[in-house]
Design a protein around this nucleic acid. Structure first.
Lengths: 201, 201
DNA sequence: GTCTATAGTATGATAGAC
DNA sequence: GTCTATCATACTATAGAC
């Protein structure tokens, strides 16, 4: 029983990647050690050699998914250009909408929320994302992009919520449409906020 | 094996209500017939007399939760007053934020999405909610509440997404704060849209 | 309508050979 | 490090007595 950080072997990596996939597809409650082992092509003893059990392996997998999600978001948000354009890039990025969010989708799982080590990557990811969006929006406000009543932190929370909620609507409808409609509605409101601050261009 | 609609007995009702609770707390994958029977104080044979199995009982429970959610939303959205105030009432309604949405929370569950009879109430609920919000916003636009570029349908999708995504953020943080911050950010953007349409009051 | 008994499979983990 | 038993429990459902 070693922590994931200590073990860089191919087997451990394969187990983590497979667990990332299964957590995305089936959630934590719906993912069994057996399913992980079979898809990874790894024996039972091997898994329990590298990890202490399902929670330990899941913690490593969720941490990795959270890191990858932050990196992907930062790529959009650290572009050149106006804040509004960077937010648009983030909202319009190609996504497997019907698969939902690898990280946010786990928030509904009671066993994830109950385990501090499993929930921590979720909290950290969304804290970071709201913080990064707040920075971008503050830059935009400083550049005169937004009106006087504009609140960067609250708007950042709204943006993240629209993405996470968009996944819920799309999966419920089995159609990516509502996700993109919700994002479009948000961008239009941001445009109106621009207009309100600077007058129609 | 009777459908829920045909059976109004106390036992069937008790089973449905208990299933509603457990689906909310544990999701579909995480809810076992055994747990339902024990919490409902009902024997195994009794459950299988009234329902064909876990999926059949869950379908009845999800339909009922969806109906209740629509009724609660309609109460806020059918008030007197300006569209913006009705939307504010809907967003500000007291909610058990950390428990998540009884209906939307199921959208992450793969077995719910895979079963048309289980997914249908989700789709119908969010279709109805976006439609109802669109009506409210159209009334507001007709009354001059919003600016020229305002899109009622897209904004309706945004509002629903903010609520569903707000639950995700709040549960991830184990704190209702991000839900309310996201809702606040949305209301501020709507205010700016008002301002942009009519000029600052 | 309700109950207990039973069944076959899956879960999550451990033991110990190799 | 990896493998194959093995284990106690839980899952979902059926059978059949009452």
């Amino acid at each position: 029983m070693y922590s994931a950080a200590m073990s860089g072997t191919d087997t451990a990596r394969k187990l983590i990647e497979t667990t990332q996939e299964l957590l995305w597809e089936r959630g934590y409650v719906g993912t069994s050690p057996r399913a992980i082992q079979q898809r990874a092509g790894v024996g039972q003893g091997s898994m329990y050699h590298h990890f202490g059990g399902k929670p330990d392996l899941a913690r490593a997998a969720v941490r990795k998914s959270a890191e990858e999600m932050r990196a992907a978001a930062d790529a959009d948000l650290s572009r050149e250009g106006m804040a509004r354009e960077r937010v648009r890039a983030y909202l319009s990025r190609e996504r497997a909408v019907l698969r939902g969010c690898r990280v946010g989708g786990l928030a509904q799982d009671p066993d994830v929320i109950a385990d501090p080590g499993l929930r921590a990557p979720l909290r950290e990811t969304f804290d970071w994302l709201r913080g990064r969006l707040t920075e971008v929006l503050e830059e935009g406000r400083a550049a005169g992009e937004f009106g006087p009543g504009f609140d960067p932190a609250a708007t950042a929370a709204t943006i993240v919520a629209v993405v996470q909620g968009g996944y819920v609507l799309a999966r419920s409808a089995d159609d990516p449409g509502p996700f993109h409609q919700a994002a479009d509605g948000l961008l239009r409101l941001l445009d109106a906020s621009v207009t309100s601050g600077r007058g129609a261009s």
